[in-house]
Design a binder for these strands. Structure first.
Lengths: 325, 325
DNA sequence: TTGTATGCGTTATCAT
DNA sequence: ATGATAACGCATACAA
């Protein structure tokens, strides 16, 4: 930047004004600065800029690199953040990287806010963070401290799945659970409540599973071994895919002999050969709201935390049909 | 940091020495500094640190968030980079984010080096970058300028697939192509050459496809419509999964009536119900070498670029068997 | 072993 | 409308 100033013959401050696009400069110098910048191949230094205004224009994103929903969420975040003038700093947690390490790194880079997409972190870990930075949690609804929450109404989602299957004539509807994963608890209780409301409390069956294909496949083995249900709702899409694979291998027709519903409507469910009936979370809307929540909190740090619940929507495809019996 | 210095009653420089773990301080002050740091909840400021030593300890990673191979590669990068004392700055490109935007952002954060995992970028775009930062390219082998290259021997991979199928008795082996994707060209020519070497030039059949399940599924439709082959090699795992789905839906048994080989040995191929025979790229090794290459180049910026080729390995699972006829 | 002084590239404050 | 100057938090060279 000093180079540009020297070349044009003005102060560095003036150059800064032009480059930031704030007013206060004459049109003539503005043009000359822009020209010089292009010629010199100038590239702004986000480090220095962030250092100066202690409140950096960077948002940290915590998520699991392996969960399709979270990845899709992040994808939607990018254009929105860019539009608001924020950079995104990704803090993925994976097998080789603990979550607190990820948080630590983001904080070292002085993120202004934190978007926690995969809240495996317990509320008690998140709460103290909220005093340093703006924190918004996506998925799990533990409103405590100053943490904003954007979440999908998981219970309604599985209820929609049950309603759909019941309307097709199913009664023997099993549920493959998601264990401790984000949202899994609510999905399970939504299933339970819906079954009860339909007078199917007796037919309620919850099988331990998970959010991965592996766990879905394992659950399917047990489920199909004796007295297989006519329909199964999976904790998420990957789990559903694992179930379908096992079912097909076992010679069961899907949906002829077994209807399957997933959750998330992720890209894997949309594979033509799978074409999974699934509960869709409104990711674009949630991403937008999450961003809005962080930015709002940056403006008013002590504002009352919001808890926004977004309604999911069942997308019927070709893994569900009338039961054969 | 100033707070710690004030509290302990020494200079900020001394605190810096302790915190960085370089010698030059007495054990007594060291303890007192560490204590004070913990009490005050001190967190180093990577921005400021990076600004000071212009050569930041940050490596940028360019990759496609949707390609399993690249994501797995990134996962392996984390523990290795951490061990070398580098932070990773992720520059994913997705639907809502062009590649040059991603590059630009990484450069604005003054990354010391760039690891380009998904080299969709053309060599002519990469080359000028290499004069500013250390660049290592993973996947595509276009050694030009000062760009180091770590790549898998794609041609050998598809050759291994062909060899395997031929040894099982297959002769009618088709190939579903990966188009313009990284490595696709080499995989295709490896297939072609291997077929020729086995005297199967006549049976060579390349069908346009891609790196996604969708493209695999579309290719399968055309492929299975008339005169289906007894075996098919897919450009990558996702593509293979798309093919398998269509084949199963069409009533074909896999591998009974159609053997399928994928590429990458990604987690989707390892789904129990899929259990895909696939060509494995040695990701841990490649990740290690890529990191080594960047670090080496940071030490000797003008050193002759290296071009390291890693040998892949066929992993035989249950989607390949003897042909039925 | 410890402290002092200076600079990294930018932005914000104040004065012109 | 524009410019000089200080400050952001840390690392480094050098002096003590």
């Amino acid at each position: 930047m000093a180079d540009i100033a020297a070349r044009v013959g003005i102060s560095r401050a003036a150059v800064s004004l032009v480059l930031r696009g704030v007013g206060g400069t004459s049109e003539a110098t503005k043009q000359r600065v822009l020209e010089a910048a292009a010629e010199l191949g100038y590239r702004p230094d986000s480090l220095a800029a962030g250092l100066r205004r202690s409140r950096s224009r960077t948002l940290g994103v915590l998520f699991a690199l392996r969960r399709p929903f979270e990845v899709e969420f992040v994808e939607h975040l990018y254009p929105l953040a860019g539009h608001l003038g924020y950079d995104l700093l990704l803090g993925p947690f994976t097998a080789g990287r603990r979550q607190d390490e990820a948080v630590d790194e983001l904080l070292r880079y002085r993120c202004a806010g934190l978007i926690v997409v995969g809240p495996d972190l317990h509320a008690r870990d998140l709460e103290p963070l909220a005093e340093e930075v703006a924190v918004v949690e996506v998925g799990r609804g533990v409103t405590r401290g100053l943490v904003d929450v954007i979440r999908n109404d998981d219970a309604v989602g599985t209820r929609q799945a049950v309603d759909h299957l019941v309307s097709l004539g199913h009664r023997d509807i099993a549920y493959v659970d998601g264990g401790e994963n984000p949202g899994a608890q609510e999905r399970r209780s939504g299933y339970r409540a819906a079954m009860q409301d339909h007078g199917l409390a007796e037919a309620t069956r919850v099988v331990p599973g998970g959010y991965t294909e592996d766990e879905g496949a394992r659950a399917a083995h047990g489920l199909l071994a004796n007295q297989p249900p006519t329909a199964v709702i999976a904790a998420n899409d990957l789990c559903a895919i694992g179930i379908i694979d096992i079912a097909l291998r076992a010679g069961l027709q899907v949906p002829g002999q077994l209807s399957v519903v997933g959750y998330d409507d992720s890209r894997f469910g949309r594979i033509p050969g799978i074409d999974l009936t699934s509960v869709r979370q409104d990711i674009p809307r949630m991403a937008k709201q999450a961003l809005k929540a962080v930015v709002d909190r940056l403006d008013r740090p002590t504002h009352k935390p919001k808890d926004l619940v977004v309604r999911p929507k069942l997308v019927v495809r070709s893994t569900t049909s009338h039961p054969s019996r």
